[in-house]
């Protein structure tokens, strides 16, 4: 059941330049699945709309949720100033998440690029079986690498070549001769397009997490749609709602150019 509530900040720290790691106390943690997200509301009324931020880690027993986000504007800048015991309004849990049941028994690539890396942590935690975690960074600020390494082998790519393979996640796959049956990816659109093309070429299943500017977060406003190959069941046109039908889609079902 989706709901909006006031969460309490448990901790916050900057883990790379402009990348913040915040734990909040909320019962939403008990329902969160990997790949889902929450809507986080700024207090400043000049910035009205909630910010969609993915679930990085959900501690069900403690009722604590971890979000890792980049400061991208006024709203996230406000969040970055929160300290222990501050309150923050959140709504969730939103979206579909990665299809864990379809991944069972398969060799899985977990691919993340930049601020698309955080949702892979909860996925890595929850996914049993053989997994390769391939993460792409701009530079040597390898946030969340140690956390991910606790749940599988991590391969790093950096754009500037300062760590791991120079290039992107697919360059790291090639350099390390990695193989899998299915891909779960989250990252910037150029990366997701490349992942989609790679999966098509290799005949692999791929589940990619998309983002778009959102307003309501619950599927009512139709702000955040993606073109779909088939007519969408809800909209009856070739548009699916990223906030509710996604954010995770099978790559071959969406037209992302």
């Amino acid at each position: 059941m989706k709901r909006k509530e006031e969460a309490r900040v448990l901790s916050q720290r900057e883990i790379a330049p402009q990348i913040f790691d915040m734990w909040i106390a909320t019962d939403l943690a008990r329902e969160a699945e990997p790949g889902q997200f929450i809507a986080v509301y700024p207090r400043d009324k000049s910035t009205l709309l909630p910010r969609p931020i993915s679930v990085c880690e959900a501690d069900r027993e403690r009722g604590a949720l971890r979000i890792v986000y980049r400061v991208a504007g006024q709203g996230t800048r406000e969040f970055s100033g929160l300290r222990e015991n501050d309150r923050i309004a959140v709504m969730g849990v939103l979206g579909n998440g990665y299809p864990l049941e379809k991944l069972r028994g398969k060799r899985v690539f977990l691919m993340g690029g930049g601020i698309g890396i955080p949702p892979l942590l909860e996925l890595a935690r929850r996914l049993e079986g053989e997994k390769r975690i391939i993460v792409g960074y701009r530079d040597g600020n390898l946030f969340l690498r140690e956390d991910l390494a606790a749940h599988g082998t991590v391969y790093v790519a950096t754009e500037d070549g300062s760590e791991g393979t120079r290039g992107n996640v697919l360059d790291a796959v090639a350099a390390n001769r990695l193989e899998a049956d299915v891909i779960c990816a989250c990252g910037p659109m150029p990366m997701l397009r490349a992942v989609k093309a790679y999966a098509a070429e290799k005949g692999m299943e791929a589940y990619i997490s998309l983002e778009e500017r959102m307003a309501c977060g619950v599927g009512a406003c139709l702000g955040c749609v993606v073109k779909t190959k088939e007519t969408d069941r809800h909209s009856h046109v070739n548009n699916a709602r990223i906030c509710t039908d996604g954010p995770v889609f099978e790559a071959k079902e969406v037209e992302i150019g």
């Binding site: 778009e212 139709l222 749609v225 993606v226």
Partner: peptide
């Protein structure tokens, strides 16, 4: 049915 506009829409 109407498909609406391209994104970004908001």
């Amino acid at each position: 049915p109407w498909p609406g506009n391209p994104t970004p829409r908001v």
